[in-house]
C-alpha cells in the first residue's frame, strides 16, 4: 500500500514537472506540448478507433514474429548445445547474427517480402531467434551433469530427459534469453515501422512517424506513452510470472 502511494506520487510528480516546464513559457508548445494536449490526443485517437487498430496491427506483428522466433530458437538452442558440429556451425552463426541489430534486416526483408506483414514478422523473428537460441544453448551448457546422471538412474532417457530435466533445469537462462529476445524484437519492429511504410496495415510506429511529419508532437508523445505501456504490460504478463516462479523455486529471492 505504501509502495503504491510512493509510485503514484512519483508519476504524478513527473507529469507535474512536465506541466511546469510548459507553463514556464521557455519552451515552444510545438516542441513540448502540455500533458493535457497529449491526453486529449490519446482520448480522440481512442474514440476514433485509430489507436486500437494500430495497437492491434503492431502487437499482432510482434507476437507472431516473437513466438515463431521462440519456437525456432528453443529447439535449435537445445540441439546446438548437444552437438559439437551444430555448435561449430549454427552456434557461431547465431553468435554473429545476435550482435547484428535486427533492423539491419529491413532492406532485405522489403525486397524479399515486399511492403507486407511478412517483412515485419521476418524482422521480428531475426530479433528474437538468435538471442533465444544462444540463451538456451548457454543454459544447457551450464547444466550440472549430475542432474542428468541422477535422472538416468531413475529411468529417464532421450526425449524425457530433454523435456523433464534439461529444459526445466535451464529455465532461468531460457527466460532471460526470451526476455532479451523480446526487447530486441520490440526495438527492431518500432524502427522498421517508423522508417518503412507497410501497405498491409498501419502500426503504432507509423502513427508516430506521421506525427513527426505533421509536427504534431502531442501525437508523437502520445504514441510513445502507448509504447511504454505495452512494454510494461508485456513484462508483467509474459515474464513476471516465470520470473517469480524461478525466484521462488531456485531461491534466488528478491525482497
Amino acid at each position: 500500500m505504501k509502495r503504491a502511494v510512493v509510485a503514484i506520487l512519483f508519476f504524478v510528480g513527473l507529469v507535474g514537472i512536465w506541466q511546469a516546464m510548459v507553463s514556464s513559457g521557455h519552451y515552444s508548445p510545438v516542441l513540448l506540448p502540455p500533458p493535457g494536449d497529449v491526453w486529449h490526443y490519446l482520448v480522440e485517437a481512442a474514440k476514433s478507433g485509430e489507436l486500437a487498430k494500430a495497437t492491434a496491427v503492431t502487437t499482432k506483428r510482434l507476437l507472431i514474429g516473437y513466438f515463431a522466433g521462440c519456437l525456432l530458437g528453443l529447439p535449435l538452442g537445445l540441439l546446438t548445445a548437444r552437438s559439437k558440429y551444430l555448435n561449430d556451425t549454427v552456434g557461431v552463426l547465431a553468435l554473429g547474427l545476435q550482435t547484428l541489430p535486427s533492423v539491419c534486416w529491413v532492406p532485405l526483408a522489403l525486397l524479399w517480402f515486399g511492403q507486407t506483414e511478412a517483412a515485419m514478422q521476418f524482422v521480428v523473428i531475426m530479433g528474437t531467434l538468435w538471442s533465444v537460441l544462444i540463451a538456451v544453448e548457454n543454459g544447457v551448457k551450464n547444466l550440472p551433469p549430475l542432474y542428468v546422471r541422477a535422472a538416468r538412474t531413475m529411468g529417464s532417457k532421450g526425449t524425457h530427459t530433454l523435456t523433464h530435466v534439461i529444459l526445466p533445469a535451464s529455465l532461468p537462462y531460457v527466460i532471460s534469453g526470451m526476455k532479451q529476445g523480446w526487447a530486441f524484437a520490440w526495438r527492431s519492429l518500432m524502427a522498421a515501422e517508423i522508417f518503412v511504410t507497410i501497405l498491409t496495415g498501419v502500426g503504432l510506429g507509423h502513427i508516430l512517424h506521421y506525427g513527426r511529419e505533421l509536427n504534431a508532437m502531442d501525437q508523437v508523445l502520445g504514441i510513445m506513452l502507448v509504447l511504454v505501456v505495452i512494454g510494461l504490460l508485456a513484462d508483467k504478463l509474459l515474464f513476471s510470472p516465470w520470473e517469480s516462479f524461478i525466484h521462488r523455486r531456485w531461491g534466488t529471492a528478491r525482497n
Binding site: 549430475l146 542432474y147 546422471r149
Partner: peptide
Amino acid sequence: FQEHALFPWL
C-alpha cells in the same frame, strides 16, 4: 549422490 542432486525446479 554426495551432492543431493535434487531438482531445484520441482
